[in-house]
Design a protein around this nucleic acid. Sequence first.
DNA 1: TAGATTGTTAATCGATTAACAATC
DNA 2: TAGATTGTTAATCGATTAACAATC
Lengths: 218, 218
Amino acid sequence: MKSIPVPTIERLSILYTLLCRLEISREEPLSSAKIGEMMGISSHTVRKDISYLDIEGTEAGYDSEALKNALHKILGLSKNRKACIIGLGRLGCAILSFGKYMGGNIKIVAGFDSSINVLETIETDVPVYPAYDIPRIVKENQIEIAVVAVPPEQVQLTANRLLDGGIKGIINFAPVVIKTNDESIVVKNFHIMEELRALAIMIDQKEKERMNSNGKDI
Amino acid sequence: MKSIPVPTIERLSILYTLLCRLEISREEPLSSAKIGEMMGISSHTVRKDISYLDIEGTEAGYDSEALKNALHKILGLSKNRKACIIGLGRLGCAILSFGKYMGGNIKIVAGFDSSINVLETIETDVPVYPAYDIPRIVKENQIEIAVVAVPPEQVQLTANRLLDGGIKGIINFAPVVIKTNDESIVVKNFHIMEELRALAIMIDQKEKERMNSNGKDI
DNA sequence: TAGATTGTTAATCGATTAACAATC
DNA sequence: TAGATTGTTAATCGATTAACAATC
């Protein structure tokens, strides 16, 4: 059982969401070409990705129901996961709120903030705790995943507390790189503002390319 | 002038933020090893990345001030960029608010929402407009970048309006893939919930690996 | 000089794309 | 059968890592 490449996992996860949203005219089977078109990738990639699934049943495309089931299985969606959010500012609250919407298998069971004031005034039905309680709560509830949305200077402290609690994966939204000595912790950094900047540069590069191909510089 | 690989651009952008935050004891030069440690990447990668900069001055490491300047230049930070946000729900507002904080070169100059109610009650000093005004406002203000944080079913309509306005780059937070026929538009999808799911699977895979290497299955 | 560090070329690794035989 | 589509192997592409001569 080969382990699935990370980009493939991400695409499969997106595909699942897409299939769920699709009002399925279950009649017509989905071809890899059609899927590729919906996802903006090539049909080759789609087939390659799907080849990691157990699904083999195919004739003139994939049965969307079967595909959904296979994805459900490989994405481990039957297993319930517990997650928590650290930092209940705007971003933290936003994630908290649409974490509820998407009735998936990942449940946000705790929120943390270092400000008592925030904890007292927040309106949510998820239980919230002070930041120093992270290790205890994470351990007691066996929380696997943490979403970190605290100011940069608090990130490392937060990460340490999470590791103390035995967290297994961290998604970090602060513009800092989280280091862990523990190889077995999965960390994923989401640097929104940096990505915005990177996007701007890619725009410039594209324009330059176009200028170069559309004629000479003067 | 080779174009810089996207992953490199992203790392350079992160490095810049990092250097800015660093209270620089300007005395000691930064070695690629030290930078790598801070960023959680190898010194090889750091040197390779830096080789895309104009900076050459080096002896026992890099001068952090010079590095910062070179990054500033290559990242085009002297050029002012205009951005807008579509969808002023929790996520949109969050991005709007810390877009102000990070006094970078990217300025958010407009917000859009399809709900008049939202537009009337929002508290912000960024001007806000109804969604149907996107093409006009984008064109008039020469806005280059759009951050899309609307519900999935509104994404394609939003994208079309942005393209009408002549937008150059889109960051999309909705769990839908944005398609554009126009090759020259840069689109970057941020699928938060899907990434959360992907993270969970990576955790599983790591655990499986560890079980396999730490002994047999029973 | 000896030690440390860069800058760049070459080797490796991994993912995407292409191709094509097998299937319905 | 002819046409369409999968599934998988091979070729390509691109980024990361390694190595090492050049520099201070």
